[in-house]
C-alpha cells in the first residue's frame, strides 16, 4: 500500500467559545483516493476540513500532509498541496473577472505571468468554463460560480482537493456535471456532503462523523447498508438506494 498523502492523528479542536467540535479524530488517505465525509449538521465536517489546509490549527493531535506536520511555519506550502473549495462560492469569488479570480491562487504562489495565464486557461477548460473567463463572477449562475470556484483551486494544482458541500444549491444538470468532473479528476479528493448519492457516485470510501467523533470508516456499500449506524448519526441511505424495492 502506498504512503498516505494525508494523515489526521488524534485531532481535537474547540472553538474559542469553548464548544468542542472535534474529538480524537484519526484517519489516513492515500494518493488518488476519493473519500466522502458525511454526518448530520454540526457533526464537525467543515471544522475538520479547515484543519486539512491549516486554516484551523490543531489544538491536540496533528495533521500530516505529504509527510509534513501542518504548522504555522509551513502553512503556505501546505496550502499549495491541499486545495479547498468552500461551500458557498460567493465566499471565494471576489476578483473583477473570472480569469482574475482563477489567477488569484497561482499569482499568490509567485508564478510567472505566462505560467499563471496557462494555468488559468487549463483550469477553466477542465471545468468547461473557458467561455466565462471575462465575465464578472457576481453575474454567474450558481452552477457557473461553483465551476469557477473549483477552477480557482485546480489552477493551484494541489495534490489533495477538499470540497465542502460541493453540490449545495446546484440544479440537477449542474450537479450531474459536477459529479462527472469529480469522478474524472486524478487528485486525492475529500468531499464533505449531505448529498449521499454524490458520495456514493464519486467516493470509494466514506468516513462518518457524529458529534465531532469519527464513528465509521468503510466503503460506501458497507456504510450505506448499515441502517443502525445511519439512524444513530441522523442520516439516511442515498435516495437511489431508498428507491429500490
Amino acid at each position: 500500500m502506498s504512503a498516505p498523502v494525508l494523515e489526521v492523528c488524534a485531532l481535537a479542536f474547540a472553538y474559542p467559545d469553548g464548544q468542542q467540535a472535534l474529538f480524537d479524530v484519526s484517519f489516513a488517505v492515500t494518493a488518488g483516493e476519493a473519500v466522502g465525509i458525511i454526518g448530520s449538521n454540526g457533526a464537525g465536517k467543515s471544522t475538520l476540513l479547515l484543519h486539512l489546509n491549516g486554516v484551523h490549527q490543531a489544538a491536540q493531535g496533528h495533521v500530516v500532509v505529504n509527510g509534513q506536520v501542518v504548522s504555522r511555519g509551513n502553512v503556505q506550502q501546505v496550502r499549495r498541496s491541499v486545495g479547498m473549495v468552500f461551500q458557498d462560492p460567493d465566499d471565494q469569488l471576489f476578483m473583477p473577472t473570472v480569469a482574475d479570480d482563477v489567477a488569484f491562487g497561482p499569482s499568490n504562489m509567485g508564478l510567472s505571468t505566462s505560467e499563471v495565464a496557462s494555468r488559468v486557461a487549463q483550469a477553466l477548460d477542465a471545468v468547461g468554463a473557458a467561455h466565462l473567463a471575462q465575465r464578472a463572477p457576481y453575474r454567474l449562475s450558481g452552477g457557473e460560480k461553483r465551476a469557477v470556484a473549483l477552477a480557482g483551486v485546480l489552477a493551484m494544482r494541489p495534490d489533495v482537493l477538499v470540497l465542502d458541500e460541493p453540490s449545495a444549491a446546484l440544479d440537477p444538470l449542474a450537479r450531474r456535471r459536477l459529479i462527472h468532473w469529480l469522478r474524472e479528476l486524478p487528485h486525492t479528493r475529500l468531499i464533505a456532503s449531505h448529498d449521499l448519492d454524490l458520495v456514493q457516485d464519486v467516493c470509494s470510501r466514506v468516513l462518518v462523523l457524529r458529534e465531532g467523533r469519527l464513528v465509521a470508516d468503510g466503503t460506501p456499500a458497507a456504510i450505506f447498508a448499515d441502517a443502525a449506524l445511519l439512524q444513530r448519526c441522523h442520516l439516511e441511505p442515498p435516495l437511489r438506494q431508498q428507491a429500490k424495492p
Binding site: 499549495r80 486545495g83 465566499d91 471565494q92 499568490n108 504562489m109 483551486v153 493551484m156
Partner: peptide, 22 residues
Amino acid sequence: QRAQRVHQAMLSRGFAGALPVA
C-alpha cells in the same frame, strides 16, 4: 462570520497579506 469565511477562502488560496499584482 461571512467575512471570516471570505478570509478563510483567501487564505486557502495562498493569500499571505499581499494581493498579487497582475
